[in-house]
């Protein structure tokens, strides 16, 4: 139910993203979803991949600063209001969202949202009971 997200410290300088994505490519790692948080001086690249353990190790070997965080992945119908159900449920249960980002799957009418919340267990419980589909890590990795 919890998905492993890899976060990488990226200094704002030319070639860093190219460098990191090449490391992933050379190790045959597939990116399912990504987002970048940027500030004036640095960014944090967050990725969901098919093999988090391996990705983490190869990045560390290349001197990247990396951390693994548990996040939730929810599936919402790809139509107006799809995401608001999720947000309403979290808000009504006083669960704050640190950040989130979305991606779509090629074949289905479902959009997927990666959620980083303050309390993963509670969020998973309330979302499930509201009928919102949570993806397992296997589903994500095999996508």
């Amino acid at each position: 139910m919890l998905i492993k997200q890899i976060s990488i410290f990226v200094e704002n300088k030319p070639g860093r993203l190219s460098n990191i994505t090449n490391i992933l490519k050379n190790n045959n790692i597939d990116i399912r979803a990504l987002s970048i948080a940027d500030t004036k001086d640095f960014g944090i690249l967050r990725i969901i991949v098919n093999d988090p353990e391996k990705a983490c190790n190869v990045l560390k070997d290349e001197e990247c600063t990396v951390t693994i965080t548990d996040v939730l992945a929810v599936g919402v119908s790809d139509e107006p209001g799809g995401l608001s159900v999720v947000m309403d449920t979290l808000y009504n249960n006083s669960i704050s969202v640190e950040y989130m980002y979305a991606f779509v799957n090629k074949s289905e009418d479902i959009a997927y949202v990666i959620l980083r919340v303050a309390d993963n267990q509670k969020a998973a419980a309330v979302l499930t009971s509201a009928g919102i589909k949570l993806l397992t890590s296997k589903e994500i990795y095999d996508m």
Partner: peptide, 15 residues
């Protein structure tokens, strides 16, 4: 230079 101990996935904690 950032150390692994300092790093986290949120901008807020790095700031």
């Amino acid at each position: 230079e950032i150390s692994p101990e300092m790093f986290s996935d949120t901008v807020k904690s790095l700031e």
